[in-house]
Write a protein that binds this DNA or RNA. Structure first.
Length: 110
DNA sequence: GCATTGACAATGG
DNA sequence: CCCATTGCCAATG
């Protein structure tokens, strides 16, 4: 595939530490495509059928909302995984989102 | 190749 | 804080 963009997205998502979450825009920015935040979401769709396990449940929208939880095998899986990681989810949104927010740029530092 | 849709983001009211 | 609009880019029909 070598669809660089998607590969980059998967790479970053895989780098997300346990108990942390990030937003599509942050990932897009890290890749230098802040305008293509939607592409990150598309990449996530492929994540389930592409690479070995991409913790897409750690990726949420800019509001910390679990927008794509419905895309998981069981929609509840997203909250389950997040809960296991120590992330509290309420009303399909991450609590203390700003505190557990993980900035990909800090790990990329190109 | 055009039109529609989409795991989004940012801005304005 | 919630709703409406715009931009952006790729996938799909």
């Amino acid at each position: 595939m070598n669809t660089n963009f998607y590969e980059q997205v998967y790479e970053i998502v895989r780098l997300i530490p346990k108990g942390r979450v990030t937003s599509y825009g942050a990932i897009a920015k890290s890749l230098g495509a802040a305008k293509s935040s939607r592409m990150v979401g598309h990449a996530m769709s492929y994540a389930g059928t592409a690479h070995p396990v991409v913790p897409a449940h750690r990726v949420v929208n800019s509001s910390g909302l679990l927008t794509g939880k419905f895309h998981f095998s069981p929609p509840e899986l997203m909250e389950e995984l997040l809960a296991k990681e120590g992330v509290k989810v309420k009303d399909d949104k991450v609590l203390n989102f700003r505190q557990i927010f993980w900035n990909p740029m800090e790990e990329i530092t190109e």
